[in-house]
Write a protein that binds this DNA or RNA. Structure first.
Lengths: 222, 222
DNA sequence: TTCGTCATGTAATGGGTTACATGATTAC
DNA sequence: GTAATCATGTAACCCATTACATGACGAA
């Protein structure tokens, strides 16, 4: 029953849908692949896993037997408890994916939703992107209004902070515009045919230049 | 005694240093002028004010008498409890301003510090800006490393999210570079003379183009 | 007189971290 | 054999929100 914070639950189910994992690895995935934006501690993760099990969405399996480790030299280090998504869990995740409430546009929530766009149907993707965008636009309106109201009473640093904040939001809006456009293009590109299968096809993403060469410098830093 | 969340305490003291205010107004200032980044509710603010009073950093004063309201038609609507900074409070705030610990580089903490740069000495400003920058740079390193490590295993959307996140950080680094350079320019500009008075002089900020015309459209939106 | 906004508060709850306790496995 | 990292967990606390309760004042 207990609701345990939408976003963590969502992300855990989403990651486990791809493949079973144990807690430790799950947390790493949460904080790297997915986690540009949010980090969870064990103190949050493990109890959450417990409740997901209690809800019947996950089952605990004994860690991969020693034989496994011999077989694949790398890959699966060695696990104690592997969590696997049940049929009900999968179903539940599907529901969460389809559900578009106004919570879905909020910062962290949105990022989590976006991270699983690969498994999201195109129309839901569109709704989420557009919802996010209008959320940001109304935020911009408020900022502009308050700025106009208070402008003169603020010192330069406060003003600069405000300006930078607004620019960040404006930038995200432009990003969303690109994404929405790409989604639309993707839709036009292969219209007419199959419109029914749940998950996304033709991912429609803009192409980008550089800004992330491999650069395998260190890795060992604390 | 109780520590009540650095950042709120800090911001409250900072705002009250400029002028006495009552809770309601304080909260509005927190969420507009200062609050691009963070919103506090009454449930947080009022108890915090209580403990600040208990610490001797604030005193409660009865709200401005009716006469006041007659005198200034606008300005001070009507206050119940006005909070004013005590000498000890001022001193304490001064200490907080001067203190540069590694906490000061974290997202929200940094924003709060920046918002009060107007009352911060130039060298502390520099330390905070540079600390923040290197904090972001190490974050970038981690992101790059993890990206290089996992790149192939990620779907396009996850990758796009990552890319956008990194670009945001890179953008903030560029912003900090500008600010640091301006601070340095400010220093050079009037070197030699008085180097001792606590608070900042010569604010050194880069000039920017537009991105915030008044546009007094609505304001009434929920 | 009723509605909106100003204004102050509190109790229940939520969501999460820290610090701690424990132990297995790998690499040196 | 000892350090690092993998791995799992829990209890105590922290910070803040929500929802609620209360009431004064100004404008329609």
């Amino acid at each position: 029953m207990s609701r345990r914070s939408g976003i963590l639950e969502f992300a855990v189910l989403g990651l486990l849908r791809e493949s079973p994992m144990h807690g430790y690895e799950l947390r790493k995935r949460l904080n790297t692949s997915l986690g540009v934006f949010r980090a969870f501690s064990y103190g949050t993760l493990y109890p959450c896993l417990k409740t997901l099990v209690a809800n019947g969405w996950l089952i605990e399996e004994p860690g991969s037997a020693p034989e496994d480790a011999r077989a694949a030299s790398l890959a699966g280090r060695r696990a104690k408890i592997v969590y696997r998504l049940t049929a009900e869990g999968k179903e539940h995740f599907e529901e969460l994916l389809a559900h578009t409430g106004p919570d879905a546009w909020e910062d962290e929530h949105f990022a989590a939703r976006f991270a699983f766009f690969g498994q999201t149907s195109r129309d839901v993707r569109m709704r989420v992107l557009e919802g996010r965008r209008s959320r940001l636009e109304e935020r911009l309106e408020k900022m502009r209004a308050s700025l106009a109201r208070t402008r003169e009473r603020l010192d330069d640093y406060t003003l600069e902070l405000q300006r930078h904040g607004m620019e960040s939001v404006e930038r995200e809006v432009r990003w969303l515009n690109e994404l929405i456009e790409s989604e639309r293009a993707g839709r036009d590109q292969r219209n007419g045919s199959a419109a029914q299968d749940t998950t996304g096809d033709t991912d429609g993403l803009p192409r980008h230049r550089g800004s992330s060469r491999p650069d395998p410098s260190d890795d060992t830093a604390k």
